[in-house]
Amino acid sequence: MKADYINPFIETIQHILTTMASMTCGHGKPFLKDDSCPLGDVTGLIAMNGDSVEGSLAISFSASAIQGITSAMLGETVEELDDSCTSLTGELTNMLSGGARKLLWERGYSFEMATPRLLQGDAQINHYASAQVIVIPFDSKHGDFFIEVALQPKLQTAALHA
């Protein structure tokens, strides 16, 4: 998968957390994921469909990470994984996909994005593509979270008739 596809997600989540939660996060080396188990306790999943590529994005937070981010964004202490945490996961998924979509559009990639699905507990992450899943691990002062991106070239109708 091209770095062109990955970097907009890194840039966007760092911008969101800096501006909305007054916090920074670092990211580790991306790696390939070989199963569909969530890496965090709450996950947002959104389909991405474009002219030349299709796939999906997931962002998965440890309980401590989403509690800390929720606390920072709401200005009150959140001590358990509650409805405000899951609602914020959906909002962060939307913000991440929208921001990355804008950056990808500026680089010549056009995407439509659907409404995010929220997953908790033992739910499986079923990406909307058969592409390899790239995971970008992040760490923050509140805990770890992970962005998963699965994008693949879309079969072109002309190629099917050749």
Rank of each mutant, 00 (worst) to 15 (best):
V78A: 04
D4K: 14
I66M: 07
F111K: 03
H127K: 11
M1G: 15
L103P: 04
F111C: 12
S22C: 09
Y109T: 08
Q132L: 08
V42W: 00
M95P: 01
S62Q: 01
M1D: 12
G98T: 01
E76T: 06
L81K: 04
E106A: 14
M113I: 14
E106N: 15
S84V: 04
S87E: 15
I16R: 03
G68Q: 03
N126Y: 08
L81A: 07
I6V: 14
L96S: 11
S110Q: 10
G90E: 01
A100L: 06
D83W: 02
S140Y: 04
A129M: 06
A3G: 10
S60W: 03
R117E: 02
A129R: 04
D122N: 15
R107K: 15
F146E: 05
L57G: 05
K2F: 05
I6Y: 08
V135N: 09
I16H: 02
A162K: 10
K29R: 14
T18W: 05
P30S: 12
F145M: 02
V149I: 15
A100R: 06
T86N: 00
D35L: 13
T70A: 03
D122P: 14
K2G: 05
I16F: 02
I147Q: 04
S64E: 11
Y128F: 13
P116N: 08
I16A: 02
E80I: 03
H15T: 05
I10K: 13
L74V: 02
M73A: 07
V78C: 06
